[in-house]
Amino acid sequence: MLEITNTRMNHLIDPSLHIWGWEIPVYLFAGGMVAGMMLILGFFFFKGREKEVDCVCTNLPLLSIIILSLGMFALFLDLEYKLHVFRFYTTFIITSPMSWGSWILILVYPVLAVSLLLRLPKFVSKLIPKLEQYSNKLKSNRKLVKSVGILNMVLGASLGIYTGVLLSTFQARPLWNSPILALLFLVSGLSVSAAFVHMIAKSVYERELLAKADNAFLVTELFVIFLFIIGMVTSTKIHQDAIALFLGGQYTAVFWIFVVLMGIIIPLIIQSLAISHKIKHTPLAPIFVIIGGLILRFVIVSAGQYSSWY
């Protein structure tokens, strides 16, 4: 028997850590989604699809800016000392993933702004007609478009990985303390963004391509979840206790039903049938993937805080 009695009852700390509420999972979800959208956008620019009239590249930069800003606003709401938010940008701490993330987020905006300029939405060019001239100049330089594509992919990958690294470096929380978490969040970000872009894409080619890509990401995500669990189960006692939260513990139902079954397996089946033309493409599968991706962040953030060394 081991019985621990503690007189401490600090707000947000006891009886188990719960410092991060809905804001952080929403921020991680938005960050992951934008990361995936930047990877898709970068790929399309790299392949020269921005020349196609119905390319989804027209919508992605502006949507990415909006979604990322919403995520950052959620992060801002989470800060306890909001007036000090500028402190993130008065220094760079090499050992702090949060510091890395702050600067990556700042780098993402100008790249998305240039991407927006490359395929100006009509309402923007109507609003500021001068931008059309700059846009035409930029578009005519193929090398530049390719470079913007590469930048989008590099920053997208960095952002996606960062959302996982942020948690995995907290050694004090055994459930997060897995290097596979970075890969899981990157792949989940990709599957969520592929699902979202699939929903808004007008081109049949892009819809088919993204449905296939989404299926590949979902299969990879399943494999990464398997690796994550195996890694924990074969690790130390505290890690085994942490993953037990998903294997019979209090997060079992929400994880397996909403993240794995609803967020991965069911959409995988629906999309596979749609790709093989047995059923029509339906928004149901992408919506399930997006909700599953959001719940994954909620579950990981919440269960991670619940897991501890004691």
Binding site: L17, I19, L79, E80, Y81, K82, H84, F170, A172
Partner: peptide
Amino acid sequence: TGCKACIASCPYD
């Protein structure tokens, strides 16, 4: 900034 990263990182809470 009150970001709470330090709180999450402390194994002793």
